[in-house]
């Protein structure tokens, strides 16, 4: 793993566009070949690449910038693993598989990612179920990181305290919806 890899990983952890662009530029083509040579199309390649970056991001925000291998090898291994799973799922598994790149074991990371991904989907569903204005209010605070003052102004609350109370009411509803789905899994 080079100093540049570490730098890119730190950038990725901060959702930095320049770092992400650099990761795309040096890795996308090889991932696209991997998918195209193994029964996939361009859209599959884009999806797998994005998911691979998310796995890498999860690793980076856990504070672990040490991949024990080059970033390129890591991302290739993750995408290869993800694509194999998808092929098995779609039952498009062919006997001949063409993987050329060097790989490392990433089972643990993928397993962790799948758990987080399931939570993400549940949260997304709960957000849809909760409806407006709760959805926009919560996303303004948690996703767009807006202050309660800004939120009060945007949504038309008379003051930040009222907006905050509303935010917590929405959060409690969201929490109930989220855990209700969890229990029915």
């Amino acid at each position: 793993m080079t100093e540049n890899d570490k730098f890119l990983l730190e950038g990725l952890a901060n959702n930095d566009k320049t770092a992400i662009e650099a990761i795309y530029k040096t890795n996308y083509t090889s991932i696209q070949s991997l998918v195209l040579n193994n029964n996939g199309d361009i859209d599959d390649a884009k999806d797998i690449f994005q998911e691979g970056i998310i796995v890498l991001y999860e690793k980076a925000i856990s504070g672990n910038f040490d991949l024990n291998c080059a970033l390129k090898t890591y991302l290739y291994s993750v995408c290869r693993h993800l694509w194999l799973k998808k092929l098995q799922h779609k039952q498009r598994y062919t006997e001949q598989i063409h993987f050329l790149g060097e790989i490392i074991q990433v089972d643990e990371e993928i397993e962790l990612h799948e758990k987080k991904n399931a939570d993400f989907t549940l949260m997304e569903k709960a957000m849809v179920k909760i409806g407006e204005p709760c959805k926009s209010l919560l996303e303004a605070y948690y996703v767009q990181k807006k202050s309660m003052q800004e939120i009060a102004a945007t949504f038309g609350y008379t003051n930040a305290d009222n907006a905050k109370t509303q935010k917590y009411k929405c959060l409690i509803r969201l929490k109930k919806l989220f855990f209700a789905q969890y229990k029915t899994l």
């Binding site: 566009k17 992400i20 795309y24 994005q50 939570d119 949260m123 957000m127 996703v143």
Partner: peptide, 20 residues
């Protein structure tokens, strides 16, 4: 923690889409 993870990934997906 789950909602924070959701928010982070949501923002990341947004950037990924822009870069793509």
């Amino acid at each position: 923690t789950t909602i924070n993870n959701y928010s982070n990934i949501k923002s990341l997906k947004h950037t990924l889409h822009e870069v793509e």
